[in-house]
């Protein structure tokens, strides 16, 4: 038992020195994209989501001009990754399928920069309509 305690104390010391995840790992390499977000939007997205990201009822697509970048990014991230939680799944099954096909055609993008592009060009603040 004495040995166990010794080993355990050492372990505790190591863990606390290193800390659980105290290193901020960047994790993963930088991805580069063939097209800019503007190019992806004006060559592909607009076909179904509209030229002002207003959504199209006949295509049953949701508007994307009603959310700011921080919020929209979460949705785009969810679509791209087919969910943001371990086993919760996604509400975006259809778009997740479509997005995969579009990526194969070269329309891949960074969710953050796409969200910023959409906000900058199309966002309508509902609180400012007076």
């Amino acid at each position: 038992m004495k040995k166990s305690i010794l080993v355990l104390t050492t372990a505790a010391a190591m863990l606390t020195i290193v800390g659980c995840g105290s290193k901020d790992n960047a994790g993963g390499e930088k991805v580069t994209y063939a097209k800019t977000s503007a190019e992806v939007y004006t060559q592909s997205c607009y076909k179904c989501h509209g030229d002002k990201a207003q959504g199209m009822t006949e295509k049953k697509t949701p508007p994307m001009n009603d959310r700011q970048a921080g919020e929209l990014e979460l949705d785009l991230y969810d679509v791209k990754n087919e969910g943001t939680n371990q086993s919760s799944g996604t509400d975006h099954d259809k778009m997740a399928h479509n997005m995969k096909k579009l990526f194969e055609k070269g329309f891949d993008y960074d969710p953050k920069s796409m969200a910023m592009y959409i906000e900058k060009n199309f966002y309508i603040n509902p609180h400012k309509k007076k």
């Binding site: 038992m1 166990s4 305690i5 355990l8 104390t9 372990a11 505790a12 010391a13 863990l15 606390t16 020195i17 290193v18 800390g19 105290s22």
Partner: peptide
Amino acid sequence: GVSRRDAMKMFGAGGAAMLLGSGVP
């Protein structure tokens, strides 16, 4: 294996003391 009481004592108290001490990151 190690008894829960021993592990709790060494790991818990030891870990906490470490965190409070100079080794804190």
